[in-house]
Design a protein around this nucleic acid. Structure first.
Length: 158
DNA sequence: GCCAACGTTGGC
DNA sequence: GCCAACGTTGGC
């Protein structure tokens, strides 16, 4: 199976690319959206690559790259009444929510801002730049991934 | 902090 | 199965 590419959103106030670099890897928990859940349960595989997107930040944009290092397990925070992500409807027999594990690969020299994504011709079909797009785990094409990584590393600066 | 856009819930 | 009400996301 060919490697696939994804974009995952996190609020840096909650969990940033720097937190991932410090931790090395993390379980991408707390996703409570069925479409995103389905990607993590069924589609995202070990060694896939992830654009780490900072949402609700100034400015929002892609901060770096992660690699999928574990896949498709139930999200245990759904079972923890103390967790912000607790969901009484989920249990060990019939888990409702799933996560994948991701590990740090790189932090970009330059955050690739949402504005930059929007003005880059090859990226105009990215889901994240669509107005009102709230999907926190979404597929990107290899071409889109490569362009964003190039921008983030500072190649092709204006 | 505001609010538009979106997803989910629940009454019918 | 429709759809209004509600809560959340996330850019600004």
């Amino acid at each position: 199976m060919a490697r696939r590419y994804w974009l995952m959103k996190s609020e840096p106030e909650v969990y940033s690319i720097d937190d991932l670099r410090k931790d090395g890897s993390t379980g991408w928990d707390g996703v409570r959206n069925y479409q995103a859940r389905n990607f993590m349960r069924d589609e995202i595989k070990i060694d896939d690559r992830v654009l780490f997107y900072h949402s609700n930040s100034q400015p929002p944009g892609v901060a770096g790259v992660a690699r999928v290092c574990g896949g498709g397990e139930p999200d245990p925070t759904a079972w923890n009444p103390k967790s912000d992500y607790y969901d009484a409807q989920s249990n060990r027999e019939k888990p409702r929510w799933y996560l994948v594990d991701v590990e740090f690969v790189e932090k970009f020299n330059d955050l690739v801002s949402l504005d930059r994504l929007k003005e880059t011709p090859g990226l105009k079909d990215m889901i994240v730049i669509r107005r009102g797009s709230r999907l926190s785990v979404q597929p990107v094409t290899r071409a889109q991934f490569d362009i964003v990584v190039g921008l983030g590393r500072g190649r092709g600066r204006r």
